[in-house]
Design a protein around this nucleic acid. Structure first.
Lengths: 241, 241
DNA sequence: CTCTTATATAACAGGCCTGTGATAATATAT
DNA sequence: ATATATTATCACAGGCCTGTTATATAAGAG
């Protein structure tokens, strides 16, 4: 094996269920079908837009985790909106959808910043799988952001925010621990897991050090009225909704 | 705009040219076609494998930046090899290739850890675009690794290595600066760019601070016989091959 | 060539991060 | 209920990180 230590599980870890999707398409019938299918396949939340203007507004309002974007829209085309989103700092996955399966379109879409491109009529299972693949990749990206019951965690900035807009800076270690906790949610994370994930194999550290770091994290979270966020489950920790 | 400050360029930044691809397919004719097409489209380096055994060996030997993987192979199937790679800690993009365009296969492939899935016969332009899209995403991921003329830089571990195996730890700021330099290569990076990228808009910092950090980086690099790596170009810095 | 400006090098010091020791509180077992 | 083990809380101190100040060197202008 290339790396015998990292045993990565490509299991569910319910990415879909925690995802908030935005579907942009002018065909309201298709939107209806997508809504039914996606929600029944476990998508957490779903917003819809029929025009680019509407999509722009909803992107700001809901900051979706992933955008499904049709190319042909009444007030413009999806390629331009995709690039607009990218230039606005929107880094999350965009899956383009189109009736035309032209190679030119696909290249155009992908080179314009889309993450994936599916031709209509698309198969719902494939769409779900591609959505999952995108969410999985994004969750391992540099600029991932986590949210849980109103609290935002931005690893790249090393801060946690609450709904009131208060934000508290985290240290390096605190950020790594919290990242592991968020990524593992709703599962628990043992101290041994934290040891190997955060400190690696060179870390001559006892589990007591972890307890101290958790204590400090809780202190900071308390200042955001989120003292309940980290709960102890036996010899492990877990994020609490 | 969602974020008026981040103006991301989805331009070339020659990801393809610096990429080392591994093509796994038992059809040697197809491999030949792919080789010709990919290299003529600017792919930097390309390795080939006709069997899983061979693919396994070449993955370890060359650590390719991206794997193009056929499903049907003489000594096993691509799905299993894909999962094997993931369980071995291989995090880089895998694009699966298959004659069958069954939805089941696509779902199976993507859920098994593949990043993308293309049905044969594939169009070379689409393949290139999808390769580019994957490389782009990977370059923004957590576990990206950079290499330049024998020097390895692993942002996640905050270390630089040379061919002799010597490695030197970097500080947070040094890592961020080096990451920006590698990502921008072969372009130059001005001090203003470093200011906004590394320190952001709250940083009450003069450009002189950057000069000091570059100095410290060069000191460490000198210990790896890589003193030439960072060169000064006017008011900017650049990585030197 | 001289003056001016930009960059490189070096040393300094405050501050934050982090692991550990010590004690209290809580959970678990017998 | 008592003893034992585990976890939480708090204080401490060494060390590393980082921005700044100071000086030397190099580059560029006129």
């Amino acid at each position: 094996m290339l790396n015998p230590y990292s045993e990565i599980e490509y299991m569910a870890s319910d990415l879909l269920g925690n995802a908030n999707l935005l579907v942009v398409d002018d065909d309201s019938l298709l939107r209806q079908v997508l809504r039914d299918q996606l929600l029944s396949h476990g998508v957490g939340q779903l917003e819809e837009a029929g025009t680019i203007a509407e999509a722009r507004q909803k992107t700001v309002q809901y900051l979706p985790d992933l955008v499904i974007l049709d190319v042909e829209l009444p007030d413009g085309n999806g390629f331009e909106f995709c690039q607009y989103l990218r230039n606005s700092g929107f880094e999350r996955p965009i899956i383009m959808l189109t009736g035309r399966g032209d190679e030119t379109d696909i290249v155009h879409g992908l080179d314009g910043g889309a993450n994936d491109y599916i031709a209509k009529p698309m198969r719902i299972g494939e769409l779900i799988a591609r959505i999952n693949a995108q969410l999985r990749q994004y969750s391992a990206s540099d600029d991932v952001r986590f949210s849980l019951s109103g609290f935002d965690f931005v690893p790249a900035d090393k801060i946690v925010k609450n709904q009131s807009g208060q934000s508290i800076p985290l240290t390096e270690k605190e950020t790594m621990i919290l990242k592991k906790l968020f990524r593992s949610w709703p599962d628990t994370v043992t101290k041994e897991q934290l040891l190997s994930e955060v400190w690696g194999y060179g870390g001559n550290i006892t589990t007591h050090t972890i307890e101290t770091h958790i204590y400090r994290l809780r202190q900071k979270l308390r200042r955001l009225d989120a003292s309940h966020l980290i709960e102890t489950i036996g010899a492990a920790y877990r994020l609490n909704k």
